[in-house]
Design a protein around this nucleic acid. Structure first.
Lengths: 238, 238
DNA sequence: CGCCGCATTGACGTTCGTCAAGTCTAGTGG
DNA sequence: CCACTAGACTTGACGAACGTCAATGCGGCG
């Protein structure tokens, strides 16, 4: 009795609607299966890659949440994003063949390792893949524009409200609740991302609780009134 | 006597070391000449493209300086960058086939219009071009990481010092002085980029003048001590 | 010459950072 | 199983940095 071999591939990955293969035909899907060289497990607090390290691959997150972080010459660091299942990290390494930020797992995680020269090779043949790679990079640029808007002009409440809305929306797209979430990051990490100190994050959350907008139990958050959050960031309440 | 026809092309463009064709062989260079569909002139204060507009092309700046700007739902806007000769703008439009920011000329400018489907087509054939397109997008992502670091944690003096150093360094790479520059943007635009109000920009500049670090005459800036600026941003004085 | 946009400067207020004390929780080891 | 500890979080008091508001200056252009 031969052991059943489970083919580990994009074509039967349950993230295929979110991740790299989005919008590809089945035939193409099967062809890009061999982009994914291997899977790699990353334990909580360990880094997937770090600044200065040679760039070879992009990584598609299968499970777990990561933070990416840049560090300035004088040691201050800034969280540049939180990434979850289906999202691609490592794009920063392409320019100089070296990574310029660290990717740290906030919980035990697993990623698909996609050697970048394989990606380039295949995307020369598969138009849809080429287009998709371009979109992924462009999406990251647009996302960062949003962060700049947030860091440039918003006040603490607005930043935090926007952060919570963004998180819950992404989780919802992955089949989770649109009103409850568990933060995988500390107040300090949230603060670093939002350009605030951890005390300000804590105080602002407490204020949301007072106002009956959210309920907070450590890292467990329940959004009582999504509309109220949207009003804070001046989004149309839809 | 037939009029002399000047071939307008990448292969004889004096920006070819800075712009799209970087690192290409001569033969390849000639092949990508026909990426550039047309040139387009943009007058001061006019927009090259604006948010919501359909995305068709990337633009390589030949002359002039642009700002890019995103606008939030409630009308606040944030300058996301200042771009000059040899730099590529429009990358934000790739994700959703629509631009998500405005590009405004800060002075009369000229750009090369590069239809994106032509770029994709050619970069399927020319490996070096494909690689170059990827690098351009990755560079933009890395640049924005730097801006996030600046907006996230630095104080006004640090932001402005970093801004001036960055500007003068890019100008120097284009053959201009490494100690004198003419700002093409207002104090308000600088402030928007740096997450500061125009008064703070003005005050901080005045302080630099008091300290003998720079000389300011309207938009004309002379950097007296580049080292002092570097010390302010905690860069190694090299 | 006079207007207009841009810039400077001052006085004052708000927001957030800093410092410090104290609480809670999860994990560890006895 | 429970006590202990370290890390994460909360809360308060205070101060600094920057924003706001307002008056004024300046230079370019019609």
């Amino acid at each position: 009795m031969t052991p059943e071999i489970i083919k580990v591939a994009c074509s039967n990955c349950n993230l295929r609607e979110l991740c790299m293969p989005i919008g590809l035909q089945l035939a193409e899907l099967q062809r890009i299966d061999d982009i994914v060289a291997i899977r790699r497990k990353v334990k909580r607090r360990e880094t997937l890659f770090h600044a200065g390290q040679r760039f070879t691959s992009l990584y598609a997150i299968r499970t777990g949440v990561f933070k990416t972080r840049v560090t300035s010459e004088d040691g201050r660091d800034q969280v540049t994003g939180f990434q979850m299942a289906g999202e691609i990290i490592g794009l920063d390494g392409i320019v100089n063949d070296r990574h310029t930020c660290d990717a740290v797992a906030l919980e035990d995680a697993e990623v698909c390792v996609m050697p970048f020269d394989r990606i380039e090779e295949l995307s020369r043949e598969i138009t849809a893949l080429q287009r998709h790679v371009h979109k992924i990079m462009s999406r990251e640029i647009v996302r960062e524009h949003g962060v700049m808007l947030l860091l440039g002009g918003m006040r603490a409440e607005e930043r935090l409200a926007a952060f919570l809305l963004n998180l819950v929306q992404r989780l919802h797209a992955r089949g989770f609740s649109s009103s409850e979430l568990v933060l995988r990051m500390t107040r300090e990490e949230i603060g670093s991302y939002l350009g605030l100190k951890l005390e300000t994050v804590s105080r602002t959350l407490s204020k949301f609780v007072e106002d009956g907008i959210v309920e907070v139990q450590q890292r467990h958050i329940r959004i009582v009134s999504q509309d109220a959050l949207k009003r804070i960031v001046n989004l149309p309440v839809c």
